[in-house]
């Protein structure tokens, strides 16, 4: 049975969970008070600090880190990429550290995952970051040549429920068309065409329906937005 460590860093906490296959055996939220993380100039500088807390938390809960077989982190603000599970590579780490699309807590996911995985010689992954881009060319036009529509949305949850829906319909996700509506503080509506999100409103940019507060997540900066 594969044992998977899941790391999901937020702005003021890090959620972690351990699964044996699909079965959850441990879950906790490590809180980061402002006085602890406030001393770091950039979010990315917190990675070592958060990594050590994760290892400590696992040890305290009698989960031997050498029992892990893979580590997965929340994907960050990378360059646009198609949906999927990505191995964390040095090139990816470089982009996450540089903050090519902005400094954001989710950038820590891949970095911490790889740091822990490297200690154990096991693989590190990220899955469906918000920068998933499978948009059709026709959807990229805004009518103003210097404003290009971009794909940035709740990709992780949209993809997860789309697969659930496909299963329910007894079809492959890649064989059907779905409209997925993620409704939280921000709302993203994605057109899933045979497994690809060919169009989606950019809620971060104010596109689409108005919402409770019309925001996806607070990014400090988004290139090309």
């Amino acid at each position: 049975m594969e044992r998977i460590l899941v790391i999901n860093p937020g702005s003021t906490s890090t959620k972690i969970a351990v699964f044996d296959g699909r079965k959850e055996i441990f879950k906790t939220t490590i809180r980061h008070p402002a006085e602890e993380i406030g001393k770091y100039e950039k979010i990315i500088d917190q990675y070592e600090f958060r990594k050590d807390l994760i290892i400590k938390s696992l040890e305290e809960n009698n989960i031997k880190i050498d029992s892990l077989s893979a580590v997965v982190g929340r994907g960050g603000l990378l360059h646009p990429i198609p949906s999927g599970t990505y191995k964390v590579t040095d090139i990816m780490i470089e982009d996450l550290k540089k903050g090519v699309m902005g400094d954001h807590a989710s950038n820590l996911g891949g970095i911490i995952a790889k740091a822990i995985a490297d200690l154990l010689n096991i693989p590190a992954f990220i899955v469906d970051p918000v920068v998933v881009d499978e948009m059709d060319d026709v959807a990229r036009f805004s009518g103003i040549p210097d404003i290009k529509r971009i794909s940035i949305f709740h990709a992780l949850n949209q993809k997860a429920v789309a697969r659930r829906a496909a299963k329910k319909l007894n079809k492959r996700y890649e064989d059907i068309n779905l409209i997925v509506v993620h409704m939280g503080g921000g709302i993203s509506v994605g057109a899933h065409k045979r497994g690809r999100v060919v169009d989606v409103n950019n809620a971060l940019n104010g596109e689409g329906p108005f919402t409770p507060e019309r925001s996806v997540r607070r990014f400090t900066r988004v290139a090309g937005g």
Binding site: G84, A160, R163
Partner: peptide
């Protein structure tokens, strides 16, 4: 499918691979 479970979604991505 109300809510969102990011932890499970991340897990599932790895399990599929």
């Amino acid at each position: 499918y109300p809510g969102e479970d990011e932890m499970q979604a991340l897990r599932d991505g790895v399990v599929r691979v």
